[in-house]
Design a protein around this nucleic acid. Structure first.
Length: 422
DNA sequence: TCTGGGGTCCTAGGACCC
DNA sequence: TCTGGGGTCCTAGGACCC
């Protein structure tokens, strides 16, 4: 038997915004996705007003205004930096820590299993609060899937007061019988529908499925899920970050793009950013895909999706090589006469830079490496886009909207909060 | 005017091989 | 006229996650 906990930050992006702006406390707050498109985080007050995850901001604008909901553009630099602090606050409470997402961390609590784990979890929550101000909930159970479920129960049911320890089988069954099948981690819309067709609507019923039935209805994924709900771990708390398989830089445009030069400018910026990400992770890529498409939500408008995949040999993390490949892809896939609203670059076949296969005719790789290092340093020190290739252009009409972005409170010296005594 | 941006894993089916 | 029985690898697409 293992003992797993999941600690999850409440309304994470909103809580990060509130950490540096007390005026947001007690009022409804929504954090919008890139381009100020959708609601991706909501304070409890905003949830109470009926704002749903993924609601398009422009469709609910009136309601937001009427209730005085504060809308913040997303500030991922801030959220990423705050995550580091949360993880640091949590580490001493577990033997192993797996960062699962920007606001969730799995903990191996096996060595602490004979303590009162509710007390243990509350001490951990206090520490996170003190270090970051961020409120959290904790779920404890024998497997990760059950810990996820326990966490959801801790959040939803006031009875638990923020910490649900479901190691006790009787309590666990009680919760599972009342937990909607579609809310179980790993059960999405398609699977929920299939389950409902055979009368399965609770987590308890999924747990009681025959393995063969689970396999037949879904795939091995559902089979594993049944095992996890039965308390048999199908996945462990993983400390080591797995090798990444792919990487992407994609953005919607603030205004539609009609000409290839402007599109190239956007794609050039994404290529530069993709190279930077590769180098940060010490990786090289073997394949680059570029795509661009029209607004699929717009009925009646001409629709087109352009995409090309280019092999990169030698494998590379050189932004200028990525840029050249992306340009060739755009040229090949371009079609006049459409209003493009989104483009992106995806990298595949990722390999650690030091394991990169060598080829003949590579050119002066070291010199280019030094150029890229210099580029990263300049842009790191003086801000993004200080040094850019001419192809990126100087006008960025297409750039995304972020009208209510909070400052980089914790990561840029010129934007740290100041306190005045007057 | 207007709907995010990342990721992972699994399966089916085609191409190709002996 | 006859037309096996395995393999592997790759890709596209679906489903799911935050």
């Amino acid at each position: 038997m293992t003992t797993v906990a999941l600690i999850d930050c409440n309304n994470y992006y909103v809580s990060c915004e509130r950490a540096f702006d007390a005026s947001l406390n007690g009022v409804p707050v929504v954090v919008a996705s890139n381009n100020d498109g959708c609601a991706i985080a909501r304070s409890s007050e905003a949830k109470a007003l009926g704002v749903k995850m993924g609601d398009p901001i422009h469709l609910i604008r009136d309601r937001l205004n009427k209730h005085g909901v504060v809308v913040r553009s997303s500030n991922y630099t801030l959220y990423g930096d705050m995550q580091r602090r949360v993880v640091a606050a949590v580490e001493e409470f577990a033997s192993e820590v797996e960062i699962y997402s920007i606001d969730e961390t799995f903990l191996d609590l096996e060595p602490f299993a004979d303590r009162d784990l509710v007390d243990h979890a509350n001490a951990m929550r206090d520490q996170v609060r003190r270090w970051t101000t961020i409120p959290t909930c904790v779920g404890i159970a024998p497997t990760k899937t059950l810990a996820k479920l326990a966490n959801a129960a801790a959040k939803k049911n006031p009875l638990f007061d923020g910490v649900a320890d479901l190691r006790d089988p009787v309590l666990r069954s009680w919760v599972l019988d009342r937990f909607p099948a579609g809310d179980v981690w790993g059960v999405g819309r398609a699977t929920a529908t299939k389950l409902a067709e055979i009368g399965i609507t609770t987590a308890g019923q999924i747990r009681d499925m025959q393995m063969k039935q689970a396999r037949g209805l879904g795939t091995v994924v559902l089979e594993r899920l049944v095992a996890e709900l039965q308390g048999v771990a199908a996945s462990a708390v993983e400390v080591i970050e797995p090798q990444r398989r792919g990487m992407a830089v994609t953005r919607s445009f603030g205004t539609p793009v009609h000409d290839i030069e402007t599109l190239m400018g956007a794609v050039a910026q994404y290529a530069m950013r993709a190279g930077e990400k590769l180098r940060q992770h010490g990786l090289v890529a073997g394949q680059l895909s570029v795509f661009f498409h029209t607004n699929r939500f717009k009925a009646g408008a001409g629709q087109y999706q352009g995409a090309r995949r280019m092999a990169l040999h030698p494998m590379t993390a050189d932004s200028l090589e990525l840029l050249a490949a992306a340009r060739r892809g755009v040229e090949a896939a371009w079609r006049d006469g459409y209003a493009y609203t989104k483009a992106g670059i995806m990298l595949d076949d990722l390999v650690a830079a030091e394991l990169r296969p060598r080829t003949l005719f590579e050119g002066d790789v070291e010199r280019r490496d030094r150029l890229m290092t210099a580029l990263d340093e300049v842009n790191g020190r003086f801000g993004k886009f200080t040094a850019v290739p001419a192809a990126q252009g100087f006008r960025r009409d297409w750039k995304m909207r972020a009208e209510n972005r909070s400052p980089a409170w914790t990561t840029r010296i010129d934007e740290v909060p100041t306190v005045r005594a007057d």
